[in-house]
Design a protein around this nucleic acid. Structure first.
Lengths: 119, 119
DNA sequence: CTGAATCCCGTGGGATACTG
DNA sequence: CAGTATCCCACGGGATTCAG
């Protein structure tokens, strides 16, 4: 191992971001408002409880997300982005912009192909 | 599907970048010089032929990487970054920087913990 | 409400051998 | 040299059930 050129550490960053639901979780938390477990669930209708907790735990582990437990019945837990997690904001923004452009590009290409077929 | 808020398209970008070896492949190709198949293999000592071809095919599919075949014996194939692929450069750079910082941060934390233990 | 525990499956990726 | 073709396995992720 450790053969990665030091100049190539995006993998590290990717590890923190990758996971089927992490991006969208981060997206919602980056809105700023702390969200309860079930609020997140509602925002991600297709996620299972299991995956939501797993991903949140991982993000918490890396101090990207903060978990606050209010000791009361019924339980209340709030998740929010940490200050450190905020540092991801610009890179997610960049990724987002590229993503949008990429989608547009693909779409244009598709239309061109369909154009050809009707020729 | 299609429930992703339009404002959250980093997934698209991530798809183009993610894959065990894609980042490092891109890193090498972004150096600018076209590389032959076996040159890439030598640069990624642990990758299998299979995975190298698979990842290159995927990158080619998205027009991030260009594949040029020189019809000769023995065969010669060169891979290079496309102009479009170059547009990934800034986001990889950003990811890289964050990755480095993240590693440093983790290291510092680890040292702090070890410090505590010796108290 | 916020989880943890099980069980299960598809697929990304590895090892190895073969080919024009 | 630059790949395919097979076979195989680990693991990320899903469905479902139980619990404080």
């Amino acid at each position: 191992m450790q053969k990665n050129p030091v100049h190539c550490q995006f993998v590290v960053a990717l590890d923190s971001i990758v996971g089927k639901w992490k991006p969208i979780i981060l997206y919602h938390l980056l809105q700023g408002k702390p969200l309860r477990f079930n609020e997140l669930r509602r925002l991600l209708p297709d996620i299972t409880q299991r995956m939501l907790t797993l991903h949140l735990r991982e993000l918490e582990e890396e101090e990207i997300v903060k978990r606050v437990i209010y000791p009361q019945i019924p339980p209340k837990v709030e998740y929010s982005i940490t200050e450190y997690g905020m540092s991801l904001s610009p890179i997610l923004e960049t990724l987002h912009q590229w993503g949008v452009a990429h989608v547009v590009r693909k779409q244009l290409k598709k239309e061109k192909n369909e154009q050809k077929e009707t020729d």
